[in-house]
């Protein structure tokens, strides 16, 4: 132990610790605060979420044990069942569309950038820029652009003679969800692009050269060299997109609304969960019991699918290489 630099410190009560006890004390000082903190604000709430789903609730008070009743109502009793299924399918649409539009385009851009064209560094920085912006901000920005009468998108269509294509993008069931998904893709595109690009860069250059010497064209190089060798990055992006799609909240909330308008066409599970827990904007149907049940179901679904799917994709990685 280093002596205190202060000269006049009264040293009467200082306890001398044995090295062993000193070490234990030091380790406890390091470990106890983060562990307790983590218990209180993460572990206990997560466990409580499970316990709460088995109780009946009135407001913020527990009024009795409910068994699986909350789960039964959410999954099998109308109107809750209809809302659950509707929101679930919307999440599925979000996921599939993002996989094709956002991640497909990202892969294409990453392959282009992988050849190190002039300005690569600049393009990387630009493509990644929206990733740093809040979904709330981007959502409001595009909500203004998508305004049916005075929004930039429709005005632009009019300006280039495509005025017939102008739509009330967020105001009709056929386009609302896809418009919001497009904004998500615009905001998030840079992320998978950078992840794919990093994977492509880690492939030894000889592989590409060997393939090209053998007379493979760019499509074949992408299909038979790049694609198998970036399989781990693909796994990560698929799983992250899956988790992100099923936690989708900010964008539909600010661009459409808490009730998933028009006609619940933009309703997703996280919105539905929030609404169940903290009340609808129209008509206060609020229930912590059903809310907790939804949270548990959503958590289990995402966890089980993510783990199983990671296993399958990892096996595919091995087979491909």
């Amino acid at each position: 132990m280093a002596a205190s630099p202060r000269p006049a410190a009264p040293d009467t009560k200082r306890v001398r610790l044995s090295p062993r006890a000193g070490r234990t004390l030091w380790l406890a000082t390091l470990l106890v605060p983060p562990t307790v903190f983590f218990l209180v604000f993460e572990v206990i709430p997560m466990i409580s979420a499970l316990i709460y789903s088995f109780y009946r609730w009135e407001g913020i008070g527990r009024v009795g044990f409910a068994g699986f009743d909350n789960f039964r109502r959410v999954l099998f009793e109308q109107p809750f069942q209809g809302w659950t299924i509707n929101a679930f399918w919307n999440n599925v649409i979000v996921f599939l569309t993002l996989m094709v539009v956002q991640n497909g385009l990202a892969l294409f851009l990453a392959i282009l950038l992988g050849g190190n064209p002039r300005g690569t560094r600049f393009y990387q920085v630009v493509f990644f820029l929206p990733v740093t912006l809040a979904f709330v901000l981007v959502g409001f920005q595009w909500k203004l652009f998508l305004n049916p009468i005075i929004g930039l998108v429709n005005q632009m269509l009019g300006a280039v003679g495509l005025g017939a294509l102008a739509q009330p993008w967020l105001g009709q069931e056929s386009t609302a969800l896809f418009s919001i998904i497009f904004v998500n893709a615009w905001r998030w595109l840079g992320f998978p692009t950078i992840v794919f690009l990093a994977a492509i860069r880690s492939i030894p250059q000889d592989y590409f050269e060997a393939a090209r010497l053998d007379g493979a064209n760019e499509w074949h190089v992408a299909r038979h060299v790049t694609w198998p060798l970036i399989a781990p990055a693909v796994t990560i992006i698929v799983i992250l997109t899956f988790i992100g799609s099923f936690n989708w909240f900010d964008l539909p909330y600010v661009m459409a609304g808490l009730d998933g308008p028009p006609g619940r066409s933009t309703d997703v599970l996280a919105l539905y969960f929030y609404r169940t827990a903290f009340g609808e904007t129209a008509g206060a149907l609020q229930d912590f019991g059903r809310g907790s049940a939804l949270a548990v179901l959503l958590f289990l679904f995402v966890l089980v699918v993510a783990i199983t799917w990671t296993r399958i994709l990892r096996r595919r990685e091995v087979e491909l290489t």
């Binding site: 604000f41 572990v43 206990i44 709430p45 997560m46 409580s48 936690n247 996280a270 929030y274 827990a277």
Partner: peptide, 16 residues
Amino acid sequence: GIMMPLKLAVIPLFIQ
């Protein structure tokens, strides 16, 4: 904890 989406524990967090 990396796998735990704390958002889904928002009800207990709220009460706590």
